[in-house]
Amino acid sequence: MREIQPTRSELLEVTRKIRLTQNGHKILKLKRDGLILEFFKILDQAKDLRLEIAKRFREASEKIAIASAVDGVIAVRSASYALTGHPEIQLRSRNLMGVVVPEIKSSKIVAPIYERGYGIIGTSPRIDEATDAFEKLVETVVKAAELETTMKKLLEEIERTKRRVNALEFRVLPDLEEIERFIRFRLEEMERDNIFRLKRIKGKMAKAAEA
């Protein structure tokens, strides 16, 4: 506080900074609220997908356990090694309130039995069912990946924006207002000093004129 020059130009500069900070604070608060709204839009979908993953995994695990028990682990493994198609994913990005979030597109995951690569007659329906269940699980995992990445990025941005809003509200603005108060006080003090000095000079001049 001691380095601040209590001048009118400094006061104008501080007042300008306060206005700028207040504007920034308002805009950041709007951004934070917008991000929170976007976050709430996808939160329920993400929760549902998470439940779906757990459900599909339970189903798929049951089916593969039955296939392994009835047809044997070797049969299941050999079918899994015979597969020809492999799903791939493409990552694209889109902008959501200034946050770059991914869009995940996958190549066909659920394939008909005749496209899987293992012989239709060579495997049992139990292995086919297990494959089907796992393909659906992978499809859900891909959907969840997109949503969860979006959620993670939004949460990071919300946290960052909240920190900025709080810093402006509780640190930067109060400091600037304190400086403004200090300069105003000092200027008033200097003005009072000046008036008092002028009055004394006037008194002295009046006395000198009388004498």
């Binding site: 798929a60 695990s61 593969i64 392994s68 299941v76 493994r77 079918a79 899994s80 090694y81 597969l83 198609g85 492999h86 799903p87 995951i109 394939a111 899987r116 292995i127 297990a130 494959t131 269940a133 796992f134 393909e135 699980l137 992978v138």
Partner: peptide, 8 residues
């Protein structure tokens, strides 16, 4: 093993 069946 199940994921391998799904083509991963």
């Amino acid at each position: 093993v199940g994921f391998r069946l799904a083509g991963i």
